[in-house]
Amino acid sequence: MELLLPGLGLLFWTLIAFLAVFFILKAFAWQPILSSLKERETGIADAIASADKVKAEMAALKNENETLMAQAREERAQMIKEAKDTADRMVAEAKDKAKSEYDRILADAQQAITQQKNAALTDVKNQVGALVIEVAEKVLSRELANKTEQENYIKSLADTVKLN
């Protein structure tokens, strides 16, 4: 039975000791320990959160890079194609131009030839006309003697005409 009877002294000292220990530990142990633990935990949580954020940013960056690359590749292909087209076009243009120039030169040459030929023909015609007139003049002035003489004369006149 004595076991169940609390001793006044122990009651008193336990109360004093508990309160003393409570206030000492509260001020000098639990407060710093709990705040440190909390600080560390929030620090870790923040670190994890920021790591996730960085990861997401990295993924976004990678995506962006890939789209950029694809775009660049497309642009390059486009540029090559355009360059090729331009080159083809330039060659074709040069060819066309050369051909038209050739045609023009040819046409000019033909025109010049025709002109000169016409000029030459006109000259020949003029000379033949002049000759005929000269011959006719001479024939008229000598229309006297005989017929044979006449014919010889014409013949000699004709011989003098040198058709060059």
Binding site: G9, L10, I33
Partner: peptide, 27 residues
């Protein structure tokens, strides 16, 4: 009224001294 430092009291005070020293050290 008996407020003696009995062996329970003394041992409790020793235990609490150890506790306080350890915990304050850790803190």
């Amino acid at each position: 009224y008996d407020f003696s430092l009995t062996r329970n009291v003394v041992q409790m005070l020793i235990a609490l001294t150890i506790l306080v020293v350890l915990m304050v050290g850790v803190a």
